[in-house]
Amino acid sequence: MTKLADNINPHIYEKGTEREITASDLDENVVDEIDEREIFDLIRNINDPEHPLTLEELRVVEESNISVDNKQNTVDVNFTPTIPHCSMATLIGLSIRVQLLRALPSRFKVTVKVAEGTHASEHAVNKQLADKERVAAALENNNLVQIINQCVAIK
């Protein structure tokens, strides 16, 4: 028997609009800094492992939960699992991490965490996501990589 999803009927939220392209975006001489919105755009379209929906539609990631510091070269992402006992939380966190590793310049130090108080085993999940070796080990597991790749692949 196939496993049913943890949250069978999640609440779906509105998709935000695409970032508006301003005149300065098209001006060759203006330098655009990497900002929160840009990080959000990188991860909003990651697919949920259980539903054909994006993390944005499930409001797992939100622009307000992201912070970027271009001077210190740090990026912090907090995400909110749909339900407090979601078994996919680690997987979602890992997908976000992988996507950011691939899509951000290497100067950034990326931290991905479960937003405070939104998950039953918040501490354990955060520990797993922060542990470089565990992440590296997970990425050597072909099955896991396959699922993550399917999540981050652009539809």
């Binding site: 098209l26 840009e38 692949a153």
Partner: peptide, 25 residues
């Protein structure tokens, strides 16, 4: 330096990561 370019760079690079990797669409 341009966000517009970064956007395409991300698309290209994340796609190349999938080349030959499990789960490639």
């Amino acid at each position: 330096s341009k966000r517009f370019v970064r956007c395409y760079a991300v698309a290209a690079r994340t796609r190349w990561f999938l080349v030959g990797a499990p789960g490639e669409p």
